[in-house]
Design a protein around this nucleic acid. Structure first.
Lengths: 147, 147
DNA sequence: CGATATCGTGGAGGTTGTCAACGATTGAGG
DNA sequence: CCTCAATCGTTGACAACCTCCACGATATCG
């Protein structure tokens, strides 16, 4: 077993698997007029009952705040989210999903989930859950460490 | 437990974790004048005793062949790899690592491995191995399916 | 020999990552 | 009250990346 081999490197495998899943997800989401990034933003907006600030969106997604601007612009132009002023802070703009945004997200989520199941088809259900749990710990640990 | 939540989506976690690891690796590799992509190409060239065609490079890395051109150009300009004609096929150009390429790769690999260990610090050694094995199966399965 | 496929390469167009600014607003300390 | 630093959204710039298409050179199959 060659430990120097790229095919055995966890970082490379992570990047490679991510590329595969993102590519597949983008293809599926295109049917709903969305890219993965837009879908992520929309999802967080739908799940946040009172809306979510663009700052928090950037933090949750690991993006630069400047990237969020464009994504929200596109979703807003598509009528899927709105920007509402925050009650307590006039700098902040809360991103809230519209009724149509909720519908689109629900439909897209179904397709996206099916595609992830397909992409992870080599793993049993239990293994998929193990993978999910391990990745979640890596991500949250990195977050609590300051990225 | 909200199954619709983005933070529980395996695809999102994969993409997020990959982004973290790649960012860290790029920072480490910058000390050696490399980016992750270049390091990957260089690694495969070093590991291939008789060189590797750009086609195979693209396949192993999941890249479009046209992307490999630029990466090899940069590595060649840095004196880390050479392009040699293939003995049996005049279309193919074999990418082979130079002596300096081997040295740089060895030095960079050490730093990269240390960084991955740091990024995956939330997991025990056994868990890291589990993660690696699961990802390897996902990637090879996708490969045997035609991406 | 001729049709078809493959390899490397170039270029176009869109998406992403990173960074540095700026105006508006907030919060803390003097 | 007033100044100073910090925060939020936004814009702009620039490099990296992905996707696709087309081409010349070469190989392979019929």
């Amino acid at each position: 077993m060659n430990l120097g081999s790229l095919a055995d490197d966890a970082g490379f495998l992570l990047s490679r698997a991510s590329g595969l899943v993102v590519r597949g997800a983008n293809a599926v989401l295109a049917e709903h007029g969305l890219r993965v990034r837009q879908y992520s933003v929309l999802s967080l907006a739908v799940d946040a009952a009172d809306g979510i600030s663009q700052r928090d969106l950037a933090g949750a997604l690991g993006l630069d705040p400047s990237q969020v601007v464009g994504l929200v612009d596109e979703l807003q132009a598509a009528g899927l989210v709105d920007r509402r002023p925050s009650p307590g802070d006039r700098r902040t703009r809360l991103v809230v999903a519209t009724a149509r945004g909720c519908e689109v997200r629900a439909a897209a989520a179904e397709g996206a989930r099916a595609d992830v199941r397909r992409q992870l088809g080599a793993l049993t259900g239990a293994e998929q859950e193990t993978l999910r749990a391990l990745l979640a710990r890596v991500v949250t640990e990195a977050g609590s460490r300051g990225d």
